[in-house]
Nucleic acid binder design. Structure first.
Lengths: 327, 327
DNA sequence: TTCCATCATGGAATCGATACCACATCGCAT
DNA sequence: ATGCGATGTGGTATCGATTCCATGATGGAA
């Protein structure tokens, strides 16, 4: 492997001069610069990243920890992150926890000395996690969940849920079911649920116990949750608010299977604006969360923090309700 | 930041001894080991990865270059890769080209000195690319496309296409349309098309020119391609073979929109076994490519190569045709 | 002529680890 | 007593860059 030393020898200059050419720093005569550049070109020399990192204490790598890349939300966020980071010469080291909270902690340890910063696409906000993050004082951004004392980029889950609920009510529905997820996921589990309950309450609408079910982020569980709602409720709801598109699509697939028509017999709304949502039949009413923007925003804040510039501690992104035929 | 030197001082041993403890190499007395371990524990010391890499010439990082992570195929492959790599202590450096061939080349340059190996989830096999890969002699695996002189993990696109076509013919169809993609993508563009043509020919079935259209890997273009087929053909085909699920789903959405029924008026089949495919109406007949397995296999071959063990130059994965109601 | 910026360049220390080698100790066989 | 292999430890060079400092030219101002 050709090193800076070889380049120096071949160009008949010192390593210092090669380094100056490489980094565009200090004084280098035009003549020397050209000689060096020619040698670099000829040899195809690429500086060793780790030698550089060792010396400069910068890796130009950002660690991204996420629960999975097989769903649209995280993969969109990563796309946004990548786009913004690569503009500034940063790369992404990917850590897929596969929904395993243990691994989340392990990866934090693993990454700490290898990256300039970490982005966590979070599904939980357990104290053990936030504790650890603070303890390793490394530039850090959390996407999708709120936490104390860290930079967060979040969505306004509470108001989204109120809006969706309000939308259903305004369409004339008074009996509305809800398919949520476990509350360890604060953003999706708690805030969206609370938004739903609060809006229903503010409209003086009551909620039958069986109308509220839980799933686990996949289509199949949306299907099962819907089944429970249909089978267990005394009075069937006329509308369903599912906290993710996949749950909503699962619910749709169940109600269609038992011969109900959407939206005539039951209206359904989701959240997430998955690509899928516009091609199911009927197209699903949902909320666009602009995940790529979230990724870009997270990258911007992280880089600002790293570079000692001004950054915003909390960013709450806006959203857009997409009204389609399922309601 | 605490370094190996600090640990050495605190444990009252030399750096060499700490290193030996860290790597479980050479002789270390039980007593010294315990002292060192205690200090490490107490300080939360983590060795610097780049210093280590500089010395050992191993980064324990694999670069993964892909066109996008927003579609299921690459994200499944990455999941498989990650699973297998992390078992062996390797991490993934992600390079998203956003379908830009220029970037593909740039990333190769960028990664070359930072990683122990590269996995390319390929969409093209242009000579410029394969040339470059060979020239940088770095452990390398290509997923999804075949190329000379590199380790490849591929699918049997040709026979898949023949099988799907045969399946349609066996169901009684003789007029079959085809929605493909550009042929710069050898696997998806050429092989699948050739499989279709060859199978049709072997059955003595002719293909009207307008029955064969092209799209670009998204649902919308499947929709447009289908529109062309319907509008331009003298005799409408009774079945459509789309080379990806998204194209197939686009096609479905178009024919449903114009009031045709699936599969009564027209049958549709895709490839890819996207999650989506089982929830569209009717569920889509498709082919399961086991992308995660491909990722795992790619990782295994790459690691075997890196470690100087036996590896297979070409791996062709098997597949499974999923017969559903769309045919 | 002298002096002092400005420009150019190289030498050497350094980053934080590993690994080779030398040396010391110890027990056991000769 | 001597030799020798096994064990344990530290010293030091090294990986490939950056960076600070010293030293030399050069040239225009005083």
């Amino acid at each position: 492997m050709v090193t800076i030393k070889d380049i120096a020898t071949m160009a008949n200059v010192s390593r210092s001069t090669v380094s100056r050419v490489l980094n565009n720093s200090g004084y280098v005569s035009e003549e020397a610069r050209q000689r060096v550049e020619k040698v670099i070109e000829a040899t195809g020399y690429v500086p060793s990243g780790y030698a550089k990192s060792l010396r400069t204490k910068q890796t130009k790598v950002i660690g991204v920890i996420l629960p999975t890349i097989q769903t649209e939300t995280p993969s969109r966020v990563v796309t946004g992150l990548g786009r913004e980071l690569s503009k500034h010469g940063y790369q992404i080291l990917l850590a897929n926890t596969d929904h395993d909270k243990e691994k989340e902690l392990e990866y934090l340890d693993l990454l700490v000395r290898q990256v300039d910063g970490i982005v966590l696409i979070a599904t939980n906000t357990e104290p053990e996690l936030t504790q650890k993050i603070k303890s390793m004082n490394l530039p850090f951004v959390m996407v999708g969940q709120e936490a104390e004392n860290v930079i967060c980029v979040t969505y306004d889950d509470y108001h989204v849920a109120r809006d969706v609920t309000a939308f259903l009510v305004d369409k004339g529905h008074t009996q509305i079911g809800f398919i949520g997820v476990d509350e360890t996921d604060q953003a999706v589990g708690c805030f969206r649920k609370k938004g739903f309950y609060d809006e229903m309450k503010s409209r003086d609408l009551s909620i039958e116990e069986a109308w509220v079910q839980k799933g686990v982020f996949d289509i199949d569980s949306g299907c099962k949750a819907m089944k429970k709602i249909i089978e267990d409720s005394k009075q069937r709801p006329t509308a369903i608010f599912a906290v993710t598109d996949r749950l909503a699509i699962g619910a749709m697939s169940y109600v269609k299977r038992i011969g109900m028509e959407i939206p005539k017999d039951i209206a359904i709304a989701g959240i997430g604006a998955s690509e899928l949502s516009q091609y199911v039949d009927p197209p699903l009413t949902t909320v666009d969360y602009k995940n790529e923007t979230a990724g870009e925003e997270a990258a911007k804040q992280l880089l600002a923090f790293i570079q000692g510039e001004d950054y915003q501690k909390k960013i709450v992104l806006d959203y857009r309700l997409l009204s389609r035929d399922s309601v």
